[in-house]
Simulated scan of single mutants.
Amino acid sequence: MDFSLNLGALDEGKLAKIDENKLYDVTVVGSGPAAVSAAIYAARKGLNVAMIGVKIGGQVLDTNEIENIIGTISTTGAKFAQTLEKHLKEYEIAFKEGHLVKEIKEDGKDKILVTDDGKSYKTKTVIMATGAKPRSLNIPGEAEYVGKGVHYCSTCDGPFYKGLDVAVIGGGNSGVEAALDLSGIAKSVTLIEFMPELKADKVLQEKLAEQSNIKVILNSATTKVNGNEFVENIVYKSRETEEEKILNVEGMFVEVGLSPRSEVVKDLVETNKIGEIIINPENNSTSAAGIFAAGDVTNIKQKQIIIAMGEGAKAALGAFDYLITKY
C-alpha cells in the first residue's frame, strides 16, 4: 500500500529527498519517537542520515492524552507528532515518507534497504525503530468484524460510537486509557480484564473509578464476537466459575498489548520468542554488525514514549561509535 505524500508540497524545512545513488551513514527505519530521536542524534553527529517511515509520529498518532513526558505537562498524540516533525525539519535528513521497508539485504559491510515501491537505498548502518502493532485476541468472530465493530484504536474509531454501548478488552495502561477516552463518547463502557486485577498505573485506575459509565469485569476471558454485518454482542467467561455471559455492545476495542514490527529483520538479527529484537543495552546493537534497534520493536521492557526517545538517541550514538571504530 502506498501512503506516499508529496514532500514538495509541504514545509520541508531542511529535509531532503532520499537519493538512491547515495551511500548513507545511517538509515533509520520507522518514523515514531524512537526513530525521530535516532535521526536527529545521528544528524547532530555530522552523519549523512536517511529515514524511511509511513508517517511522523508512528504509534503516537493513535494516542489521545499524553501526560508522562517530562517537561510537557499534557499534550495529545497529534500535537506531539507535530513537535517531532518540526524538530526533524531543523536537520538535513533525507526522509522518505509514506513507505515501508520490505527487505534488508547485506552487501559486504553495507546494507541495502528495499522499500514497498521497489526502490533500493544503500547505507552503512541501520537503526530499526519500527515500533509495534496491536495484538489480536484470536477468538472466533474477531477477524470477521474488524472495522465492523472490532477496533484496535479508540482514538481513531471511538467517535463512531457516540451514544452507544462499547467494550474494551484489556486492563493495562492502554486498555484503561481507551476506556477513559471512550467514556466521554459512548453511552457505556465495559472493560474486561483477563487477570484478577487491573494492571494499569494507579493514577489511571483512580480516574477510571471516577467515571460513572464505566463498568469493570475482572478475571474473565473474552471468547467470541457475534454479529450480523456488524458486532451485536461478545461472549466472556469467568475464569473462576467457568460461567459464560453475553454482553450486548455495538463496538469492541482490543487493548491487549503489542506485537513488534520486526518481520523485515527476523532472518538477520536475533529476536526473542515474541519477535522483539534483542539488543545490547549499552549501545542498542543487535546480533548483526551495523544493525541497531530502538523503541517498542526491541526487548526493552518499558514501552513508553520517553524511554523510546532515549533509546533512539542511544542507538544513534551506538551507530556513530560503530562507524568510527569498526566500519
Results as ranks from 00 to 15, higher is better:
Ser285Met: 14
Lys237Trp: 01
Asp201Trp: 00
Asp201Met: 11
Ala316Cys: 09
Ile277Pro: 01
Glu206Lys: 15
Asp296Ala: 00
Gly318His: 03
Leu191Arg: 03
Glu197Lys: 15
Pro281His: 13
Ile234Phe: 08
Gln205Glu: 13
Asn283Met: 07
Ile277Gly: 03
Gly312Ile: 08
Ser238Trp: 07
Asn299Ser: 14
Val269Pro: 05
Ile217Trp: 05
Leu208Lys: 13
Leu317Gln: 14
Leu208Arg: 09
Asn299Trp: 05
Val256Glu: 04
Leu247Trp: 07
Lys245Ile: 11
Asn284Gly: 03
Tyr236Pro: 01
Glu255Lys: 10
Ala209Phe: 11
Ser188Gly: 10
Leu317Arg: 05
Thr222Arg: 00
Glu193Met: 04
Asn248Thr: 11
Lys266Gln: 11
Gln302Val: 12
Val235Met: 12
Thr271Pro: 02
Val254Gly: 11
Asp267Gln: 09
Glu193Asn: 08
Ala289Asp: 15
Glu206Phe: 12
Lys224Ile: 01
Val269Glu: 03
Lys273Gln: 05
Lys245Met: 13
Lys202Ala: 08
Ile234Asp: 08
Ala294Trp: 05
Ser220Met: 06
Gly310Asp: 08
Met309Glu: 12
Ile307Tyr: 03
Phe320Glu: 15
Glu270Cys: 01
Leu191Met: 09
Leu191Gln: 02
Ile300Phe: 09
Ser262Cys: 03
Arg261Gly: 01
Lys273His: 04
Gln304Glu: 12
Ser220Cys: 02
Ala289Thr: 15
Glu270Ala: 13
Val225Phe: 13
Asn283Trp: 03
Ile234Thr: 05
Lys237Gly: 05
Phe292Leu: 11
Tyr236Met: 07
Pro260Gln: 11
Ile214Gly: 12
Lys224Ala: 10
Arg239Ile: 10
Glu229Lys: 14
Asn248Leu: 11
Ile278Pro: 02
Val265His: 02
Gly318Val: 00
Asn280Val: 06
Ile278Tyr: 06
Ala288Val: 04
Ala308Lys: 04
Pro196Lys: 09
Val249Glu: 03
Ala316Gly: 11
Arg261Tyr: 04
Phe320Thr: 12
Ser188Asp: 10
Lys266Arg: 14
Glu197Phe: 10
Phe292Trp: 12
Gly257Gln: 02
Val189Ile: 11
Asn280Arg: 01
Glu243Asn: 12
Asn272Trp: 04
Lys187Gln: 14
Thr190Gln: 04
Glu242Gln: 13
Asp201Val: 02
Leu204Glu: 08
Lys215Ala: 13
Lys215Asn: 15
Lys273Val: 05
Glu229Tyr: 13
Ile274His: 06
Ala313Gln: 05
Leu247Met: 10
Ile246Val: 12
Glu240Tyr: 01
Glu255Ile: 03
Gln205Asn: 14
Glu240Gly: 00
Lys202Glu: 14
Leu204Lys: 01
Ile291Asn: 01
Phe230Ile: 13
Lys202Asn: 04
Gln205Arg: 06
Asn226Gln: 12
Ile291Arg: 06
Val231Ser: 13
